[in-house]
């Protein structure tokens, strides 16, 4: 139980990482989760398991993580601040660690207004920044969030956080990223990148401050199935920037799905060649997991590194 996160080993050894995302189902069968895990097992280093994303009740991130681990993929447990107080968070994460999970991604979580239980109460006992800091302290100083000491077996998570270069105020986005890194975020996954120009400006500021030297930034890539999906993200989701040119390109495509894959591949190639300071990609193929292997292969990111132990 003392092995390290594979994702950490890849990133710390300077290799370009590939992570993907699996959304647990809205029911109690692991069939779909396992199917997706088997599909991705050779093509990614780890997969995020979302935590009731958009506040829709789904199988728990940790439970789905057990199935994924069983299929041979390393899970990145997502932990939002929306649904649990600090007692529940720690309890769940102790359990996750005991089940072999090594990566945790700390995030605020979408407001419950968007989900299928809009009349529920939200928690936000701690925010994502505090969660990062408290988990780092738990690992490094063997302390519970309250400050009480662990006797032994403190979990040693590889701690991740998110950054959204497309939300406002833009100037503060790099500051907030830096705060997260100061708090202890060892890897960062970004919001889906569609506006490459803005992402490049963001990365320029990141490099100026040397933040890319202190954490590993994984660029968020989402292949789109068509122009309607692009339009929805453009107008219906706060904190997303989708250029009109992308909507038009998908609209004009003969085979929009193929075009969506091509766009994702171009984006990854561009980032790897032109955008310094990015240490990996995080492919969020929302309800479209089956395209990930092709994207990974065609960007020259296949095969993935293997560790013998």
């Amino acid at each position: 139980m003392s092995y390290l996160s594979k994702l950490q080993r890849i990133l710390d050894s300077g290799q370009f990482a590939v992570t993907a995302e699996i959304g647990p189902p809205k029911h109690a069968s692991a069939h779909g989760v396992r199917h997706h895990a088997e599909m991705l097992v050779n093509h990614v280093d780890a997969t995020n398991i979302t935590d009731c994303q958009t506040a829709i009740v789904r199988m728990s991130s940790i439970a789905a993580g057990v199935h994924i681990l069983d299929c041979g993929i390393e899970p990145i447990v997502q932990m939002t601040c929306r649904d649990r107080n600090r007692i529940a968070m720690q309890s769940d994460l102790l359990g996750a660690y005991s089940l072999g999970m090594r990566n945790v991604l700390c995030l605020s979580g979408d407001h419950q207004k968007f989900g299928n239980h809009p009349s529920s109460k939200n928690v936000y006992d701690v925010d994502s920044m505090q969660l990062i800091q408290l988990l780092a302290r738990m690992r490094d100083e063997k302390k519970f969030f309250s400050g009480e000491e662990f006797k032994d077996h403190e979990p040693k998570f590889y701690i991740g956080a998110v950054a959204n270069p497309f939300a406002d105020p833009f100037e503060f986005r790099v500051d907030r990223l830096e705060k997260k890194v100061e708090a202890g975020a060892q890897f960062i996954q970004t919001q889906c990148i569609f506006d490459m120009e803005r992402f490049e400006r963001f990365m320029e500021m990141v490099r100026e401050r040397g933040i890319d030297q202190r954490t590993h930034i994984l660029a968020g890539i989402t292949p789109l199935k068509g122009w309607r999906a692009a339009k929805y993200l453009q107008t219906g989701v706060s904190g997303m920037l989708v250029p009109d040119s992308l909507v038009e390109r998908l609209k004009g495509a003969q085979d929009p799905k193929r075009e969506g894959i091509e766009v994702a591949i171009e984006q990854i190639n561009y980032i790897r060649e032109k955008v310094k300071g990015v240490h990996g990609v995080h492919v969020m193929a929302i309800a479209w997991e089956e395209v990930v292997p092709e994207i990974v292969e065609r960007t020259g990111l296949f095969p993935r590194p293997k560790f013998e132990d």
């Binding site: 605020s108 925010d127 998110v162 939300a167 105020p169 997303m240």
Partner: peptide, 10 residues
């Protein structure tokens, strides 16, 4: 959130 803004601010 005490260390905002979250990623939903636009």
């Amino acid at each position: 959130i005490l260390n905002g803004p979250c990623g939903g601010s636009q």
